[in-house]
């Protein structure tokens, strides 16, 4: 344990000297903040309606089923602010919509439809209209974006392992470590630990910044921990044979292809074609993390998906083992 910690501390020292660890630690927070800035713009498609205090309760109640309703004293001042807020003013039986003129395209038509439906409630329609729920319980951008970032973090963790190993290869220090009592597993754990910590920390940062509530952190920890192995193994396999950081990073970037293919495949492929993603540990990670974020995951699902991830990772390890062992010699 002493030696493992020694490697971790060395890597932190070395990584902070050229800001590497700082950049990689800041990356998940930065990505999450960018995503958070984008999420409100999706939320802006929600109708915001300003009304006077004396608006009849019936229309207020009706509007509240479709829009966020706020009471104001100065309608003009509220409408003229930067955000998209419409005014609804009731004069006798007439309902007027007040707009600034620069609101998001289509939203005024939506409000007109809603207000028109209220005014024409008694009119018999020649068609029957039904409202249905498509199942979204949170912004898809928030859900999918957070999931993508959490899985993306595993590659960042692998990249940290890779760059620390490249440093060892560049300075030929592995030979020097090989003539100390350090056991190979101590070296591997010591070199890999920081990557795992970064991945877990990144996941926690994404969840915190994006404000997910009520999720089971233990389930998330188990799932992220399982998927971290694949990033670590790929980081090791590239790192131990590279003595130049740019080419090593270029090799690592190719891993983004299966990551993105798995996630976008899971989002866009019809259910009957999902089986073509079963080879990818990133798909299984996406699948379980999505349910964890939606607070729908069960421990059975977490263990099953994590088990599949670890089996696929073990197969990848078997394929890369010789390359890793030779590189560490």
């Amino acid at each position: 344990m002493r030696r493992i910690l020694n490697f971790v501390i060395r890597d932190i020292k070395s990584g902070t000297r050229d800001w590497l660890v700082i950049y990689l630690a800041a990356a998940p927070i930065m990505f999450a903040l960018v995503l958070k800035m984008l999420i409100p713009s999706v939320g802006d498609s929600t109708l915001n309606v300003a009304i006077y205090e004396d608006t009849p309760p019936a229309i207020v109640s009706y509007l509240e089923t479709y829009a966020k309703v706020i009471e104001v004293n100065d309608m003009e001042e509220r409408i003229l602010r930067m955000d998209d807020v419409f005014g609804v003013v009731v004069n006798d039986d007439k309902v007027e919509i007040v707009t600034q003129g620069n609101e998001m395209e289509g939203t005024v038509d939506l409000l007109k439809t809603i207000v028109g439906r209220y005014q024409n409630e008694s009119v018999e329609l020649p068609i029957e209209v039904e409202f249905s729920d498509i199942g979204w319980v949170m912004s898809p951008m928030k859900l999918e974006g957070a999931n993508l970032l959490i899985i993306f973090n595993t590659i960042l963790g692998g990249m940290l392992i890779l760059l620390n190993l490249v440093e060892e290869k560049m300075s030929n220090t592995i030979s020097a470590i090989n003539v100390t009592p350090t056991k190979r597993k101590e070296f591997i754990i010591g070199k890999g630990l920081l990557g795992f910590i970064l991945t877990l920390y990144g996941g926690a940062a994404v969840i915190t910044v994006l404000g997910f509530e009520g999720i089971n952190y233990a389930m998330l920890f188990v799932s992220v921990f399982a998927i971290s192995f694949i990033g670590a193994i790929i980081g090791f396999s590239i790192g131990v044979v590279s003595d130049e950081p740019i080419s090593a990073i270029a090799s690592m970037k190719t891993v983004f292809i299966p990551v993105l293919a798995s996630i976008f495949g899971a989002i866009y492929l019809p259910a009957k074609w999902i089986f073509i993603l079963y080879w990818s540990p990133f798909y299984w990670a996406y699948d379980v993390i999505k349910d964890i974020l939606l607070v729908q995951a069960t421990w059975g699902q977490v263990f099953m998906n994590s088990g599949i991830i670890l089996i696929i990772t073990a197969l990848v390890f078997v394929g890369l083992r010789k390359r890793i062992v030779n590189g560490l010699s």
Binding site: K13, S14, R17, S171, T173
Partner: peptide, 14 residues
């Protein structure tokens, strides 16, 4: 045992 290498191999950032 102690081993001193012909080519210096130390951590440049430390």
């Amino acid at each position: 045992i102690g081993v001193s290498f012909e080519q210096s191999n130390v951590y440049g950032k430390l």
